[in-house]
Design a protein around this nucleic acid. Structure first.
Length: 548
RNA sequence: GGCCCGUUGGUGAAGUGGUUGAACACACAUGCCUUUCACGCAUGCAUUCAUGGGUUCAAAUCCCGUACGGGUCACCA
């Protein structure tokens, strides 16, 4: 019996050919040098920051070259699949403003190279597998997992290489008669690739990041189609999909490096052009004195939700990831502060290979700088958008009087070196809540040096009765505070105070602090003059009255 | 265990044989500024590039060994 007959027994309903599919999915018409990349996560319910790292690179490579960035749902592992996972992936991409050009979501397909969901591409995979069987490069394997387990044990005992190769590949030399008979008897089987490789020979593979790497040839008859769901394994789906969708560059984690020889043989067998690979480094986390892979169970910052929930600006996340991806990015950003990151010239050779510790402090720093450069309007818009989803209560308060909120956000913003106190949009509430009467409800006053309520009231009353004037400029205002110091026996000049502290009850800083705490309850705030201006006289008086 | 990748300060890292007495950024420390905080400014922070050997006039940079870390060896991706 021929291989062709075997192929027909296994896939009786497959009538299309590889050529048919190649006609359906012709070469893309793109400008010279345009890159086609894909984000291809498996829908496990978590969007890992490492995945986003890859997506940023994918998106960048496509957009920077005038190419295509598409989303492919790798749902061939039916056991791990989670139903809401694709939604989460789309949410994350939306948040990052990295929407794919082609995708399949919510029942609609965008793009001409779909389906973009692997479980819907079964027939395509089967066509390619059928071809492989026809040319004698794939075969059904009836080994059970128990048998394979025993084989592994034997191999271990002999200290040999583990795997389904050479003489260990029992089903490889079965006759087609026997194969067909066993299939007709209803035996379960997987399809294995029949490797022609020789482990003692080497291949030279050129990685865009690492450079040339020498591997032994693949000689493993690895599984390309699973028995239960008849779906392909990653290796085979990678071949078929990236060929048919004309992917030019594959960004994937370093954990894929060892399977490169398999992919090389697969592409060579079909005579397909292999995409270029960028194997990105893993994100690590310092845990005591060991470094380990950042883990979604132990490290909240491993998940994209962390950044969304805290309201980190997408630009900051991108900046921090680009910094990890390419070591000279920061330098470039320094000299091109306003440029779009897509205009950066990326050099795959500069991708770190050793696994980087993901540094949240660095993110905070990048983010603080970024937010400090925004206008009050921009911060306001971001804040509204963020609180809509993550803090509806605060959203109501903030949007109740947009101009009022903006004036708060504008404190010490319009100046050469704006304040940098917000690393994300959830920080804002912590910084400005006291400006809203709804939230300023019996706060805990952080009195510092002057704690005597009698003295505090004396200061506040004196100030309101004799010195406060709503129309004062910043300088006038502070001069009056100093005048009050002189009157009450506090030093208005810090230098004089430091020279002779005993001559005074305290100094102008102590007085300012009393005003500050009385108005905000906090001992540390931005510019007090601006706060008072925004509060206005009535509320200042009222807040002073509350002190008792 | 086999195969592969890696190892420059607290962190990300620059660096591919000689103005590197190891850049830059983050973090940290100290000081200045200052009504608080933040900002800003100034200074400090690896005599040394995992380690041993070799090549060379010259090595973090090239070669070999060792150690350590990571990845992978599934009908998971």
């Amino acid at each position: 019996m021929t291989d062709k007959e075997l192929a027909n027994v296994i896939f009786p309903n497959i009538t299309k050919t590889i050529e048919d599919y190649e006609k359906m999915y012709p070469e893309r018409e793109l400008p010279e040098g345009a890159k086609v990349t894909r984000f291809a996560p498996s829908p496990t319910g978590f969007v890992h920051i490492g995945n986003i790292l890859q997506a940023v690179l994918d998106y960048y490579l496509a957009k920077n070259s005038g190419g295509i960035f598409y989303l492919r749902n790798e749902d061939t592992d039916t056991k791990r699949e989670v139903s809401s996972a694709v939604e989460k992936i789309m949410d994350a991409l939306k948040y990052m403003e990295m929407l794919p050009d082609e995708y399949e979501f919510d029942g609609s397909v965008v793009g001409n190279y779909g389906p973009y969901v692997q479980s819907e591409r079964k027939e395509i995979y089967h066509t390619f597998i059928k071809h492989l069987i026809e040319i004698g490069r794939a075969y059904p394997c009836f080994c059970t997992s128990e048998e394979l387990e025993i084989m592994r044990k034997k191999q271990e005992a002999k200290k040999g290489r583990i795997g389904y190769h050479g003489g260990w590949a029992k089903c490889r030399d079965l006759s087609n008669e026997e194969r067909i008979e066993r299939i007709k008897n209803g035996e379960k089987f997987v399809i294995r690739f029949k490797s022609m490789g020789n482990y003692d020979r080497k291949i030279n593979y050129e990685d865009l990041v690492t450079g040339v790497i020498e591997f032994p040839q693949n000689d493993e008859d690895f599984v390309i189609m699973k028995s239960e769901d008849l779906l392909p394994t990653y290796h085979f789906a990678h071949l078929v999909d990236d060929h048919l969708m004309h992917t030019t560059h594959v960004v994937r984690g370093q954990e894929w490096l060892p399977s490169v020889p398999k992919h090389v043989e697969l592409f060579e067998t079909f005579g397909f052009k292999q995409p270029k690979y960028i194997h990105s480094s893993l994100l690590l986390k310092q845990d005591g004195n060991v470094r380990r892979k950042i883990s979604k169970r132990k490290d909240p910052e491993a998940l994209m939700e962390y950044y969304m929930e805290h309201g980190y600006p997408r630009e900051a996340v991108i900046e921090s990831l680009m910094t990890i991806l390419n070591s000279n990015y920061e330098e470039w950003r320094d000299s091109n502060p306003e440029a779009n990151y897509l205009d950066f010239e990326f050099d795959p050779k500069k991708v770190g290979t050793s696994g980087a510790l993901y540094d949240l402090e660095k993110l905070d720093n990048i983010s603080k700088n970024l937010i400090s450069r925004m206008s009050a309007d921009q911060v306001y818009d971001n804040l509204v958008h963020y609180t809509e989803i993550y803090d509806p209560e605060f959203n109501k308060i903030v949007t109740n009087d947009p101009d009022y909120t903006k004036s708060i956000l504008n404190i010490e913003r319009v100046q050469d070196k704006p304040r940098k106190d917000f690393a994300n949009f959830s920080d804002i509430k912590k910084g400005i809540w006291y400006m809203y009467d709804e939230l300023f409800d019996s706060p805990e006053y952080e009195w510092m040096k002057i704690t005597d309520i009698g003295e505090i009231k004396n200061i506040l009353n004196t100030y309101i009765d004799e010195f406060y004037s709503e129309s004062d400029t910043s300088e006038e205002w502070f001069n009056k505070v100093k005048l009050m110091c002189d009157k009450l026996g506090y030093a208005s000049n810090m230098k004089e105070y430091k020279q002779n502290p005993d001559a005074y009850k305290g100094n102008v800083a102590d007085i300012s602090t009393v005003l500050r705490v009385a108005l905000t309850s906090k001992s540390q705030t931005p510019d007090l003059y601006q706060i008072m201006n925004i509060l206005g006289k009535n509320r200042i008086v009222n807040r002073f009255k509350d002190i008792s």
